[in-house]
């Protein structure tokens, strides 16, 4: 790998260690510190079952963040994901119509719906050249309105148990851990797929190039529209999966997804994603989502009121972007 003309005479072991330590994404350190903090205030949390239960709760936002990262890296935003979550919860309940036999085709329809929403978002951004912030903000309103109209403004129907099992169920009677949440299995599968596609496949490299320098990407042969649209599809599908888990976890609620889009963006930024594109990591973004949930748990344990969440999130977005802006200015 380093058969390039080397300009120094080989770093010492200590220098190598220091360089390595510097290259570790700080979000992992932050995450572990928060984990210890929460565990200190609530020792049950560090037990296996306590932690798995927490992961189950955090799974939807972590999945949402993994999808959002793709759009952020492409240089855009996807604000429509919160509304997709809400629509999945409301629409899922209405379509299942209290008959467990309907669950499977409903899940397929919801996933297909996610693909369609992602395609529409991507098409508007890529071909109609509408800034993604505006395009997906519009989609947020469209989907929210559609959900409210469909449900008549109040939650109706129930999600059947075989639907809710993904969000709240456990595999029971296991050795060692006693029980293991389905949501964590879904989280692991989505996490691995998203990481693999982004970090180990051609698509991830083309996406990074597109976000870093769209003009150069086009001139290097990247089919920029295709790559960009696919990012929106991935984000929307991840939102459908998150919606299925969240509906299972907390039931039908017309506010189920409200605000999740901003939470996902702040989480990805915490994980080192650069707003405006060209840089990011799926595991780090998911760690950012977990860290954010841990922070909320910590604030909760410290007895701080819930509205502070929003304020904290706002501060995170502003400081992360300011930090990134300072960094790029310095490097010029």
């Amino acid at each position: 790998m380093s058969e390039l003309t080397t300009t120094n005479n080989g770093p010492s072991t200590w220098q190598r260690f220091a360089a390595r330590a510097r290259s570790v994404n700080p979000i992992y350190v932050i995450m572990i510190l928060l984990l210890l903090g929460v565990g200190y205030l609530n020792p049950r949390f560090l037990e296996v079952n306590g932690f798995l239960a927490f992961l189950r709760r955090a799974a939807p936002i972590m999945i949402l963040t993994a999808g959002q990262l793709y759009v952020l890296v492409s240089g855009g935003f996807d604000l429509s994901v919160g509304s997709i979550v809400t629509l999945v919860v409301i629409g899922g309940a209405l379509m299942i119509d209290n008959d467990p036999a309907n669950t499977w085709w409903v899940i397929l329809v919801l996933l297909a719906g996610g693909v369609v929403v992602g395609l529409v978002n991507g098409f508007i951004v890529a071909y109609l050249k509408v800034p993604s912030l505006i395009a997906t903000l519009g989609m947020l309103l469209v989907l929210r309105g559609a959900g409210l109209y469909w449900s008549g403004g109040a939650p109706r129907g129930y999600l059947t148990d075989n639907f809710r099992i993904f969000g709240r169920g456990n595999i029971e009677n296991l050795p060692l851990v006693d029980k293991f949440p389905y949501a964590v299995i879904v989280l692991a599968i989505v996490g691995i797929l998203a990481t693999y596609l982004f970090h180990r496949m051609v698509y991830g490299r083309q996406l990074l190039a597109l976000g870093d320098n769209p003009r150069a990407a086009k001139l290097s042969g990247v089919r920029t529209n295709r790559v960009r649209i696919l990012a929106f599809v991935i984000s929307a599908v991840s939102a459908v999966i998150a919606g299925i888990l969240l509906g299972g976890f907390s039931g039908v609620n017309i506010e189920a997804g409200t605000g999740l889009e901003l939470q996902a963006i702040s989480a990805a930024v915490l994980g080192g994603a650069v707003l405006l594109g060209g840089s990011g990591s799926v595991p780090a973004a998911m760690a950012g989502a977990l860290a954010l949930e841990l922070l909320f748990a910590l604030l909760n344990l410290l007895g701080l009121p819930k509205p502070l969440r929003d304020a904290v999130q706002g501060l995170i977005i502003i400081s992360a972007v300011a930090y990134a802006a300072l960094g790029t200015r310095r490097s010029k």
Partner: peptide, 24 residues
Amino acid sequence: FPNQPIRDNILLTVRTLQALVKRI
């Protein structure tokens, strides 16, 4: 691509000739 490493800059064009889901 200023924020990408040398290796990904060099390999981008040849990668655009490959399938999006090909392992790099």
